[in-house]
């Protein structure tokens, strides 16, 4: 099934996602001032996005057709590895995207 072609599904999804943006960004702006963020909860809130982003990126790069795809022939894997190193070293997002896409294109065309 392709969700993109189901207009009602998409509009309901977008409406919910808009609510999620407001609910998270404005949370403590509109919650009662007496409510504090306990350190334990803050730590959990810190790790959840880290893990959620990983759970999106890792399968996108390291799987193919719903199966793990860790191989010399996985061009995306090498591109992401190189781009990750560039970003970790120079903290420059534009350079990182250029390096990652360039390496991916080189591997795709020449191997």
């Amino acid at each position: 099934m392709n969700g993109f072609d189901d207009t009602l599904y998409m509009l309901v999804a977008i409406a919910g996602l808009t609510v999620v943006t407001f609910a998270t960004r404005s949370s403590f702006f509109v919650l009662p001032p007496s409510l504090e963020l306990p350190p334990m909860v803050e730590r959990a809130l810190r790790y959840a996005p880290v893990c959620a982003l990983t759970a999106i990126v890792a399968p996108a790069v390291l799987t193919r057709d719903h199966a793990p795809f860790i191989s010399w022939h996985n061009h995306q894997m090498w591109a992401v590895l190189a781009a990750g190193l560039v970003f970790a070293r120079w903290r420059n997002m534009t350079a990182m995207i250029v390096v990652g896409m360039a390496l991916f294109t080189v591997l795709r065309l020449w191997t």
């Binding site: 392709n2 993109f4 999804a13 919910g16 999620v20 609910a23 998270t24 963020l37 996005p49």
Partner: peptide, 30 residues
């Protein structure tokens, strides 16, 4: 949420995933 919407994943999975990614904003707002 893009890959989830692409396969028509259940809406609650879509919304929870977005909420998880956005939880860092809860810290910002606090």
């Amino acid at each position: 949420t893009l890959p989830l919407l692409a396969v028509g994943a259940p809406l609650w999975v879509v919304w929870i995933t977005a909420a998880l990614v956005n939880l860092r904003f809860v810290i910002f707002s606090a």
